[in-house]
Each structure stands twice: as C-alpha cells, then as structure tokens.
C-alpha cells in the first residue's frame, strides 16, 4: 500500500501520537494513506478510537521490530 506521508512518533507517549496524527492527516490527500510509526502501547487503540471518532479509517496495523506501523486512510 503506498503511503502519502510518514509520521514517526516512536519514543513519544500518549497523547502525542494522537495529536500528531490528527495534524498529519490534513497533510495527506483525501483517500491517501498516512503511515504512523509508534512505540507507545496505547498508540494502536488510541489511533483507532480517534479514527472512528473523526471519520477516518485504520486500514492496517503491523508489528515491526520494536515498534508498530499503523496505516490510516484519510476519508474526508
């Protein structure tokens, strides 16, 4: 899946990953994918909750070496 932008919030803690995701999604075209790299264990549930609330979609979550990769699709 091609990503329009990568947001690296590895080493950052709640609520920074969500705050940064919220800002970064606006820099991706509608329909585009924002890739978020995070180490905060709350990042996955929090970004999913944020996406549900703001009307975007978490299309993929992947565990990588020591971090997690979350792909968020901008829906509007």
């Amino acid at each position: 899946m091609s990503t329009a932008r990568t947001l690296d919030v590895r080493g950052k803690f709640c609520p920074i990953p969500v705050m940064e995701t919220s800002k970064a999604i606006n820099e991706v075209p509608v329909g585009g994918i924002l890739e978020v790299l995070a180490t905060d264990p709350a990042a996955e549930p929090d970004i999913k909750a944020w996406a549900q609330r703001t009307g975007h979609e978490v299309v993929q979550v992947e565990k990588a070496e020591g971090y997690i990769r979350i792909l968020v699709k901008r829906l509007k």
């Binding site: 609520p15 705050m19 995701t21 944020w50």
Partner: peptide
C-alpha cells in the same frame, strides 16, 4: 492537559 489534548485531537 492530556485529556484536553486527546479530546481536541478528536474534535
């Protein structure tokens, strides 16, 4: 501050 930030992020 954290609750405020998370809330603001979610509109």
């Amino acid at each position: 501050a954290i609750l405020t930030s998370a809330a603001a992020s979610g509109g």
